[in-house]
């Protein structure tokens, strides 16, 4: 039993080592292979066009066999940052942090301080959703005028990253046609929040980015 586990772990590390990957997947040594490794970030108008949906994905390249045991880390906070006055400093945050099978959300609210270190203001708007287990249909919470989801999903990113690596490595002169999606058949851990536009600005353009922060 233990031997099998160790073997599986070793094999997994070896496979991850072989496939070096992109959008933001495995982008830097300090986060690669950790539960704080952001793979992707999306922001788009929702099905209800009064809303914006934010998607943060972490833990890339989960094989289906590894997805049932994959989990969010209770020491990792995922923070959506929203700049409403174009100075690239966050005016509002939405913080997501898992506790005991649920993902808790705080915000959107104005943080008391900006930048690399964050705390959670428990007096901010608080919402929660049960983390959807692998194999179950998506559990969605509607709270405080927002929608929430957390759990495993198909990795929405697509790219022939392997061939890009060959080109950068000097082993190929161009992409293949058709290309091959390096991310096909793999999963990620997703956090999706849909927020009324009225809660994150009025009109015009906002600047947004996502951060993974670990408890000190």
């Amino acid at each position: 039993m233990k031997k099998t586990k160790i073997l599986t772990a070793t094999l997994l590390v070896a496979i991850i080592g072989l496939i070096t990957v992109a959008a933001d997947h495995i982008d830097a040594p300090a986060v690669s292979g950790t539960k704080a490794d952001i793979t992707d970030f999306y922001a788009f108008q929702g099905e209800d066009t009064n809303n914006i949906a934010f998607v943060a994905n972490v833990q890339g390249l989960l094989a289906p066999s590894a997805t049932s045991t994959a989990s969010f880390d209770e020491n990792v906070m995922v923070e959506f940052n929203i700049d409403t006055n174009n100075d690239n400093v966050e005016d509002l945050v939405i913080q997501a942090i898992p506790r005991d099978g649920k993902m808790y959300f705080f915000g959107p609210y104005a943080p008391s301080s900006t930048g690399l270190n964050s705390t959670i203001n428990e007096n901010a708007i608080k919402s929660e959703v049960s983390i959807t287990p692998y194999g179950s249909s998506a559990i969605v919470a509607n709270q405080n005028g927002m929608k929430f989801f957390a759990g495993p999903r198909d990795d929405p990113f697509f790219m022939d990253f392997a061939q890009y690596g060959e080109i950068i490595g000097g082993n190929a002169s161009g992409f293949n046609n058709p290309g091959s999606d390096t991310f096909a058949g793999s999963n990620v851990m997703s956090i999706v929040v849909e927020v009324p536009k009225s809660q994150i600005g009025t009109s015009g353009t906002i600047n947004t980015w996502v951060e993974a922060k670990t408890k000190q």
Partner: peptide, 14 residues
């Protein structure tokens, strides 16, 4: 939910 959370990764554009 106490404690200080320190940045490890961030992303805007892909």
């Amino acid at each position: 939910f106490s404690g200080t959370f320190v940045q490890k990764d961030q992303m805007g554009r892909p």
